[in-house]
Design a protein around this nucleic acid. Structure first.
Lengths: 331, 331
DNA sequence: CTGAAAGCGCTTACAG
DNA sequence: CTGAAAGCGCTTACAG
């Protein structure tokens, strides 16, 4: 435990041990490629000096960064928390550090991030970036949750169409014949896929279907609550493109004096942390975020390790419907 | 827009422009220190090749990392989201990248992170690390939310004692005379401070006070709900050490058939995203997380820039009580 | 098994 | 204003 380990370099250790820096380097990286006597001298010198390798120098020499970058469209969105945690856990186990950045910091900066030599690969949670930028990174990329077919990168996602069908079927089986979908942002691939899934599933079931605009946020759900309340014929089943939207819709509708699920059944999407503690607890599609983060990180790490894996196929993780109190039989 | 910008180095650009690498370097860093003719030749060569500076090499040469590291005890805790977002925003504006790591990845790894040359400074959200490790980093550190007096680092926090007093006063003014506090983990500085604040404030007000064990989580709040319900004399006012705990307590108590706030008023702590959308919406202490993140990042960046600021004093940000539906007049 | 030397890709005194 | 050369702190063929 050297107390003054501030600026010890490998040459300091070498000098103290009376060996070359090459030997110190080898002792640290491959102890058994060094003779016992030398090795012990070096290890002692390392101990005495409290030497810590300078990773930046090591990485430059080895032309790698030992780091992966997570890019998400809004870091303050709590949806991402468990994904970050899972990615970090996998990365840490593989001795990789994790960088994190909002993907809305500007075109220039984003383009640079993938080319400045400080990351080995990228976990991308945003399907809305310019494909020219994404494909311009000369780095392995894995898409999570969202995807963009124009990106030359594998993805780890749930089957969003099938997931919405689960929600529609659930409401239809409860006897609902008039369903409303509160969609996400018009240009978001998840929003589009979920809306299309809603339309085809309701069509197949022969129930009435309508759509109102939203953007995944609590506020948008609350706003639609007023539109819904003003309707002559109010749909009795509502499927939201996100849990936040659903919670916003429910809380506002209740403030307007309606009862959930007595007067309207509501289904969310994602199964965020508070979905089962909300009152009423929220029926929703469970999206296994930890699993997605884990698989995505493993996929990226595999691409980093085995650079000649030709094409990695998209991976699909299982999503299921969680039935709670916010949905009930139609009157 | 060079198409093959895969491995262009500064020497490639220099060769193409017919100048030295020094001139290319200067043109990029200080264009006006280079003659007009040279500058234009270089800029053209940069354009043609699509050259991107290798930040890893630049940083090694300049002996800095242009990166700050955020350390938090549990990345999947949604409490941190808006802090991460604020820190990232400030860092990005200062041209710093952000690394993120769970502080529970093991003693060795944590100690290394602060000494491997890949970060210039650390934002620390964990007051439970061994002071020897924290003080062993030869890097500027700023503590956020939590603090540990044994760390040789400034902090940005709210006044937790005063905040709890606000909550106690609120309930006392509503006529409550028997208060319960659900505390956080025994060894956590926030938990300790809030509990002590609760005890001194209730003592000063002359109302009855009791404490039950928790750990900030939803589950712990739900668990205490049963203990509370089993009491002969049930406290009519409950102050929880976190919002999550409060939501767990409320939802469980309601499932047991009690009404909130009719039969028990509940106050949380933090004002997380869903606090105002919960049903009933939660009266709580608003902890300005974005503000804390922003101030913390600015403080750290200032320490990075001005290395000889002797001692940075702790900063206190303002917290206030948000009154919502979960508290009401005692019967 | 070990060391001298080159090199990762930059920047920056220094000299002109 | 510009370039040759040294150097950031490592690792790794290469030679012995």
């Amino acid at each position: 435990m050297g107390v003054m380990n501030s600026k010890i370099r490998i040459s300091d250790v070498a000098a103290l041990a009376g060996v070359s820096t090459a030997t110190v380097s080898r002792t640290l990286a491959n102890p058994d490629k060094v003779g016992k006597a030398m090795r012990e001298k070096v290890q002692e010198a390392v101990r005495v000096t409290g030497y810590q390798i300078n990773a930046a120098a090591r990485d430059l020499r080895q032309r790698r960064a030992r780091s992966i970058l997570i890019l998400a469209p809004n870091l303050s969105n709590t949806f991402f928390s468990s994904i970050f945690a899972a990615v970090q856990e996998e990365a840490s186990a593989a001795d990789l550090t994790v960088q994190i950045s909002d993907s809305n910091i500007g075109r220039e900066k984003i383009a640079t991030l993938g080319q400045d030599g400080r990351a080995d690969g990228i976990i991308l949670l945003d399907g809305g970036l310019d494909p020219e930028i994404v494909n311009g990174w000369r780095l392995p990329v894995v898409q999570l949750c969202e995807w963009n077919d124009a990106y030359d990168a594998p993805s780890v996602c749930i089957d969003n169409t099938a997931a919405v069908e689960l929600a529609v079927d659930h409401l239809v089986q409860l006897g609902h014949r008039d369903l409303l979908h509160i969609e996400g942002p018009k240009d978001n691939i998840l929003a589009i896929t979920r809306r299309d899934g809603f339309l085809s599933a309701t069509n197949a079931s022969g129930v009435k279907a309508s759509i109102m605009a939203g953007d995944f946020t609590i506020q948008s759900g609350a706003k639609v609550a007023h539109l819904w309340a003003a309707l002559d014929q109010r749909p009795t089943g509502v499927i939201c493109a996100s849990d936040e939207c659903a919670l916003g819709f429910i809380s506002e509708v209740m403030r307007l004096g309606f009862d959930v699920p007595e007067q309207v059944s509501v289904v969310g999407f994602d199964d965020i942390e508070f979905a089962d503690r909300f009152n009423p607890s929220l029926t929703t599609i469970h999206q296994p975020r930890g699993e997605i983060g884990r698989q995505g990180a493993q996929c990226l790490i595999a691409m980093l390790t085995n650079k000649d894996v030709a094409v990695v196929p998209p991976k699909e993780v299982h999503a299921h419907l969680v039935t709670r109190v916010s949905t009930s039989r139609a009157l």
